[in-house]
């Protein structure tokens, strides 16, 4: 074993950690908006699969990953619309609607792939974009500024989401709808409309997270490509206490732990790999258990809005 943690290895662990955090960050920021408006969407995993397929398929046939990104956003929006129809308009139990959406998305993405692609096919996905000057900064440059465009997008979305949520009137409405929908309604806020908007925006981001997997990482598609990442993203929303910076922290912590365990395995440090693989999950639970105490959730989370009734 040559377990010297030299700077090249540390840079690799950190750069990989940032890359791995991207799908979680995108999906979790989306889910944050959704939950802030009072709806929890357990179907993120299914939306991600559809986004992964759409991104892959558009890139394959149109030859441009950017069009793949657009396709994943559109498909994400459609899935969000479906979820909104079921959980907002029809006021269905949100947890089970989400599981239904998850099954539907998993099945449909697999079906479409088989019908219109079939067989392992690889695509030319997004390339790393070196940011001039910044990428030359020693140590930090290769970690933060030599990534693909979706990584930058995800990172930029953190302050942007914070701004939207806390500084714009729309963000204020979202928070009001998620906490006291009746009061918001009395003040003239269209609760249903806000929830539709949040579900659609949230699902677009989930679709984008899926596209990151196919056109930003794997450069191919396979059944069940998300492998549980959507559920982790939901968990990270809770971990991040519904705040963009908290979600960033959670995504990074989780992904850095994952990146670290990969390197530990690769360097042959004697450590049962199962323990290494579960490390990120344990870290997340422990961090949540010891550091925060009572978490704050949108008060109306999970409760369908019925005009004229209370609670």
């Amino acid at each position: 074993m040559e377990g010297v943690m030299n700077s090249a290895i540390i840079i690799s662990i950190l750069a990989t950690g940032i890359r791995l955090a991207t799908p979680y960050l995108l999906a979790a920021l989306g889910e944050m908006f959704t939950q802030r408006s009072g709806v929890y969407n357990l179907g993120v995993e299914g939306i991600m699969m559809m986004g992964a397929f759409a991104g892959f398929f558009a890139t394959l046939h149109l030859g441009s990953p950017l069009l793949g990104i657009i396709a994943s956003l559109i498909i994400g929006a459609l899935m969000g619309l479906l979820m909104a129809l079921v959980s907002v308009t029809f006021k269905a139990e949100q947890g089970i609607s989400g599981i239904g959406l998850y099954m539907f998305g998993w099945g449909l993405s697999g079906l479409l792939y088989r019908l219109y692609v079939g067989g392992i096919t690889s695509i030319d996905g997004l390339k790393e974009v070196k940011i001039p000057l910044l990428s030359n900064i020693p140590f930090l440059g290769p970690i933060f500024f030599n990534q693909n465009i979706l990584v930058y997008t995800a990172l930029a979305l953190v302050p942007l989401s914070g701004f939207i949520l806390y500084k714009t009137s729309w963000g204020l409405n979202v928070r009001a709808v998620g906490n006291k929908p009746e009061a918001a309604d009395t003040l003239g806020v269209n609760v249903v409309r806000i929830r539709y908007e949040c579900l659609i925006v949230g699902s677009m981001l989930a679709g984008l997270a899926g596209a990151f997997l196919t056109i930003g990482q794997a450069n191919m598609y396979a059944d069940n490509i998300t492998a549980g990442r959507g559920f982790i993203a939901i968990a990270l929303v809770y971990f991040g206490r519904w705040s963009p910076w908290g979600i960033l922290l959670g995504s990074l912590l989780f992904s850095m732990a994952d990146s670290f365990q990969s390197m530990v395995q690769v360097l042959g440090i004697n450590f049962p790999y199962e323990l290494a693989v579960i490390l990120p999950y344990v870290v997340t639970i422990v961090a949540l258990a010891i550091s925060f105490g009572r978490v704050w959730a949108p008060a109306a989370l999970g409760k369908p809005f019925q005009r004229g009734t209370r609670g």
């Binding site: 139990e93 998993w106 099945g107 449909l108």
Partner: peptide, 25 residues
């Protein structure tokens, strides 16, 4: 048909049945 179709139908059944609650309430 591809096995994925199974999931599509299950997902649709869940979505429709859970939506039907609206009419029952």
């Amino acid at each position: 048909i591809p096995a994925a179709m199974v999931m599509v139908i299950q997902g649709l059944v869940v979505l429709f049945v859970v939506s039907s609650d609206y009419f029952l309430k």
